[in-house]
Design a protein around this nucleic acid. Structure first.
Lengths: 265, 265
DNA sequence: ATACGCCCTCACGCCGCGTGAGGTTCAAGG
DNA sequence: CCTTGAACCTCACGCGGCGTGAGGGCGTAT
């Protein structure tokens, strides 16, 4: 059918085959409007028109259009495409492509950050709660953003990626369990400290062991991440609403306990 | 200075503190124009104005604005934000956030695909060539796109990620070396096949060994990826301009050689 | 003759503001 | 008091890449 149309049209001109907008649109997946627009901005004009003004695209035009579509699939803007295809000129293709790739990578990084925030936020929000008051919600949003900004200052992108993988391996349940265990553990250690219990005492040993296990579950044993965690606790004033001054004392207490256990074991 | 301004303004009204657009803009990092726009679309209107028409934002307005900014940082559209903050209503926060996260993930996936294509393209382009003719370039673009579309049909996203990591580990140099070695290796095997050499022959053994090594360097020994590679060679007609029919024969020949070596070894 | 489908040319709408133009008001200095 | 200069006001166009009509002409099968 398509062929018979072209046959008739081409018989009239006794020349090379041509295509109408609709045909071209169907072939390339673009819309007719897009093709009109490309002509409007001087990116692709049909080489001929019928007497009635209907656009007739020749083989050359189709070739050019294919190039345009290819470059569009690579995410170039129409302006950039026009520059690439300008009157037979060559251009530093590899450089252009690499620059563009760099832009895409940059966009992906910011999307990545965004996604982390959204995931952290979803994690914080009650899955069951149908209607969350706006105040509570925005409170959570702001805390998550503040937290993620601080986190991004202390961890390198590679470390963040590693933490991400670890979180996926552990699964949401396990993470919730660990987060739930921390407060009681901290409370236990605080009590022993305030009571002045010797770090070598067996009760403290048990708490310290569990403490190190939970830390290890977070860091995955990566020494770089351990250092970053340490820096964060040393330099910030409070994290998750926990006063880091007191926390530092507790960490010292726990590490004394661990050390004394290593001496004996 | 800022405080003294507010002091004067507030003394006149003997009431709660207020802020002017410029002050608010400075605090939130938005532009004055953005604040005007938010009023225009009914997202945030200052609760008062001076006689001269200057906007005066009250504490409530500032609170609302902070919420708006937070949600903007999470990538919500202004329309969505308006829906979230609508007259004190709660809303299914977690669901909204998760939906939004899903959208972000989807965008990231398509950016990922795009990046793969751009990287493959950059790899194919001569790093030294300053001026690449448009024809050659678009040819490369189209081949890369076609290839990546086929690749995406045969590998799962996880497999693609694994391949990506492997490529990064190997480095561009090594990949170029491997790609350069294939044609000669293929030629060698073809020659032995045409000569009718027994697969158990030592020369064929050496070729087959090297073949398997190169394949292993690509697949990383992942059985899932090996299967996907196999499917691709079985179902496509040509890959990288190589006729898969002939390739299948060669693969069979090589695997006979490997099998005979295993029998004896 | 008529109906249906394709084609044409305007022209406005989208999102989230940026960027003027052209004018008023505010707060401080002389 | 007057003058500056900064900050404010409104109005209106611009961006990219088209979508989506409105209102009409052309082509061809029945």
């Amino acid at each position: 059918m398509d062929a018979s149309i072209r046959h008739r049209r081409d018989e009239a001109s006794r020349a090379a085959p041509t295509w109408k907008v609709g045909e071209l649109a169907a072939r390339t997946g673009l819309s007719v409007r897009a093709l009109h627009y490309y002509e409007e901005i001087g990116l692709l004009s049909p080489s001929r028109r019928t007497e009635a003004g209907h656009r007739l695209y020749a083989a050359d035009d189709v070739l050019r259009l294919q190039r345009i579509v290819s470059l569009r699939h690579l995410g170039f803007t129409l302006e950039e495409i026009r520059a690439c295809l300008r009157d037979g000129s060559g251009f530093p293709a590899r450089r252009v492509v690499e620059l563009h790739a760099a832009r895409v990578r940059e966009r992906m990084r910011s999307q990545q950050r965004l996604l982390h925030r959204l995931e952290a936020l979803a994690f914080r929000l009650d899955p069951a709660a149908e209607e969350v008051p706006a105040g509570e919600f925005t409170q959570a949003v702001m805390e998550v953003i503040e937290m993620s900004e601080r986190v991004e200052r202390y961890y390198t992108p590679e470390q963040l990626e590693a933490l991400e993988r670890r979180r996926r391996e552990l699964g949401e349940e396990r993470i919730r369990a660990v987060e739930a265990e921390w407060p009681t553990l901290i409370e236990g250690v605080r009590a022993e400290m305030e009571a002045g219990t010797d770090p070598a005492d067996e009760r403290v040993q048990r708490l310290a062991k569990r403490w190190m296990e939970l830390v290890g579950e977070f860091t995955g044993g990566d020494p770089g991440i351990e250092r970053s965690v340490g820096n964060m606790w040393r330099q910030e004033e409070n994290i998750h609403g926990i006063d880091t001054g007191e926390m530092r004392e507790m960490m010292a207490y726990v590490s004394r306990a661990t050390a004394s256990s290593n001496e004996r074991g």
